[in-house]
Design a protein around this nucleic acid. Structure first.
Length: 288
DNA sequence: AAGAGGCCCTGATAGC
DNA sequence: TGCTATCAGGGCCTCT
């Protein structure tokens, strides 16, 4: 669920709440996440001082002293909550769901600090934590990833080279993390809509003008989503405070059978399936 | 090598 | 009401 913008929102919140603090204790209630949590995990993090919270693509990277790291991925349903000790300001929710209450079920991992605790909740358990004990191994973990859309390496040459000799359609390339990092199923549809490109188009057949649009709109849409606090599509009623607002800007995602938002277009938004993931687009302004 | 599909898992929702 | 089927923002693994 969380794509790059949502993970960035969580990163900002973690940076505000746990950067510069020491983890006093780690509690694991369920080790069976996407990857089974090693029994050394708790001790590896215990008493570690947090230097910084970074992010690459959809991954959070907690940086400790002595060049060790904890990589966190939220999978489809992972959320992170901060519960403060003081009774007055009881709860700060750092998940992009921003539900006012910390859930009771599926709280699998907790980091205890002197003044607060971090709670990892994940019903589907597609998320994971990995402890990495040096920088080389951290870099190795992300070696095969393509550039983020903001990276200057995400340029015309990269797209042309990458698409050369391949048959895949452009939508599936946008989801391919070896091609570009951080885009997920929502933003892929949104980027193609704003670029007026049909998701079924073979990527190698796109012209320079279209490729430039994809580069430009990838940056633009992700940045705008970050500015708006990411997207929240479930628990809408429970949304509070600075919850995600970008879902209000969805032009196509989840809008099947609704009118195209371009005032000059009389099209209807269609929903199709590509590699078992849903794609939304307008057949008229995203002509094949 | 590239690309499609299965699978991991729970929960919400639709249809009967 | 209660069943079953389908779908969900991700990505690793296997098979062709």
């Amino acid at each position: 669920m969380p794509e790059l913008p949502e993970v960035e929102i969580v990163r900002q919140s973690l940076s505000k709440n746990i950067k510069g603090k020491k983890i006093n204790q780690v509690l694991v209630r369920n080790r069976n996440l996407r990857f089974r949590l090693k029994h050394s995990f708790e001790n590896n993090l215990k008493n570690k001082f947090i230097l910084d919270i970074k992010r690459f693509s959809k991954y959070l990277i907690i940086e400790f002293e002595n060049n060790s790291f904890c990589i966190i991925h939220l999978g489809m349903s992972g959320t992170i909550h901060i519960k403060k000790n003081k009774k007055e300001s009881l709860i700060t929710n750092t998940s992009f769901y921003h539900s006012p209450k910390i859930p009771e079920k599926h709280n699998h991992v907790e980091f205890l600090f002197s003044d607060l605790k971090l709670i990892y909740n994940d019903p589907r358990r597609f998320g994971f934590f990995i402890f990495v004990d040096n920088k080389i191994n951290l870099e190795k973990r992300f070696k095969k990833f393509g550039p983020e859309p903001f990276d200057k390496r995400f340029n015309l040459k990269h797209l042309t080279n990458f698409f050369n000799g391949k048959k895949k359609n452009i939508k599936n390339f946008l989801l391919d993390q070896k091609f570009v990092s951080g885009i997920g199923n929502i933003y892929a549809s949104e980027i193609l809509y704003s670029s007026k490109i049909n998701p079924l188009t073979q990527a190698k057949n796109l012209n320079k003008f279209q490729l430039k649009k994809i580069i430009k709109n990838s940056k633009k849409i992700l940045l705008k989503a970050i500015k708006q606090g990411g997207s929240t599509i479930r628990d809408f009623k429970n949304t509070k405070g600075d919850a995600g607002h970008f879902q209000k800007n969805f032009k196509v995602y989840g809008r099947d059978n609704k009118n195209c938002k371009r005032s000059s277009c009389s099209g209807i938004i269609h929903k199709i399936s590509q590699s078992k993931r849903s794609t939304f687009f307008c057949k008229i302004c995203q002509k094949y």
